[in-house]
Structure formats: structure tokens, C-alpha cells
Amino acid sequence: MSEPTGVIHDIGYQRYTGPRLGRRYVFGALYVHGLRTAFGLGRSAKAKIFPWLVMGIVLVVAAGLTAVRTQTGQVVMTYAQFADAMSWLVIFFVAVVGPELVSRDLLSGVLPLYFSRPLPRGDYALAKLGALGTALWLLLGAPQLVMFLGAAFTTKDGLPGVWTELGDLLPGLLYAALWAVVFASVGLLIASFTGKRAFAAGGIVAVFLMTAPIVGILSIMPSRTVNELAMLGSPTALIHAVGQYTLGDLLVPGGQAEDQIGGFGPVYVAAAVLLVAGCVALLLLRYRKVATR
């Protein structure tokens, strides 16, 4: 029996014989999806407001700093200092985007649909972590790039001036990466414990802000050692201390770094590594258990 030609008809179900891509492709697809979600791309207009508002603010600040520098020749903030100055915005960005990436999936119950596919559970968590880390790095790195371009085009020293500027930018971008890694791992871990986005956001803000007074109290204790180790008290201060130790003048001009952390620089680096490793380990552990029943 032959089908009439030129007529639209139901061709029925088609089996798929084409390629099925492997773990790396799936990981990449989930990572890119997460990164787009972080900035509200491919989502409703409402979801775009917050991330782009924050991005707008940091870019405007960077443009302002660049303008001041080109007009007056005064460096208000170094590249590395820019990240520290934006810490509040970074905290709020993590508090909104972190839950957006993981809490939403917990609440909607979509995880069984992921975990019944070849993708290993750990890959899900790491792809989301990578997406949040990259989003944070872009948030702090893009304005630094604006500052660099402004400085590079207006430098009076020609090409060597551009090189000097680049030499300042790269440590700034690395410092931004440290911010991104610490904030992403701590923030995502907290967000992964609840499906309620408001709770997750509150928890993240609490951990980053409520720990600040600990640093304050420790830094006025009558012991120099305790003072010098005070910045272990909160993730934000910890990052700053690692920055002081590794970047020195670029972060704290005038060589005061030694005064605040003494000889404990390596301790701070070790603490930062342990914090990130611990959070990632707990995150992976969390996703081994979640949605198994």
C-alpha cells in the first residue's frame, strides 16, 4: 500500500540512531545552562533584573573609577581592591543566584529526572558550582577589564605603560577568582540544603555577614597572635588575608600587610584551601544522598 504523495501525514515514531554524546558534553551542557541561568538568559524578563542590575552597578563603578583616574591621574582603587570594595554586592549576588541554581531544582523535584540519566550525581553538583564560580568571576573580572581598557588607552607611557597595567590586572583577576571559588563553594553548599530560595538566601547572607563581628572581636583581643589570626573568623576576611599575603602592595598599599596578619600568611592560604575543599566535599556528599528515595 503506497502513501499518497504531497500530503502531510503522521510519520509515526522515529527511532534515534544518531550519536549519543558522552559525559564531558553533558557536563558542559549543564555548566553552560547553569551559567546562562545565573544571568537569567533563556529565562523570564523578571529573572534577568537582579543579575544585570548588579552587573550594571559594578560596571558603572568601574567606569567611574576609570574616569576619575584619567581626569585626575589618581588611582582610587587598585584592581584587587575593587573586589574587596564590591564584597556586599558579591554576597547578595551569591544569595540570589546560588539558590536559583540548586534550590529551585530541589523544590520542583526535578532531580530524579537528572539522576535517572547517565550523568553522575557529582557532575551535577560540580557543573552548578563551576557555573556559579564563573558567574562570580565574570562579575568581578568584567569591571576590572573596563578599568584596564580605560587605563591602557589613556596611558602616557606607551606600550610599556600598557604592560605595567597588565601586570597589575592579572593578579587582580586571580584575586577575583579566589573570591569566586570561596563564595561559590560556601554559597552553593548552603543553598543545596533547602528547596526554599528565601531560606537559602537568608542562610548565605547570614554566614557571610554574621561572621564579620567575629573578626572584629578577635582583632581587639589582648593578644597579638589572636589579632593576627582574627581574619580566619569569616570567609570574606579570610579571602582578604590571603590577598594581603599573596598580593601585598597591590591590595594594601604602603606595606601594612605584615602588620595585620604577621607571619601567618601560609596559615591563611591553608585555611582557604581547606574551606573550599571542605565545602566541595560536603556538597558532593550532599548530592550522593539527595533524592535517592
Binding site: P19, R20, L21, G22, V26, L113, Y114, R117, P118
Partner: peptide
């Protein structure tokens, strides 16, 4: 979810 199953 199709992409999560490895479809291009």
C-alpha cells in the same frame, strides 16, 4: 533533559 541524555 534530552541534552542531559547526550543528544546534540
Amino acid at each position: 533533559l534530552g541534552r542531559m541524555s547526550g543528544l546534540p
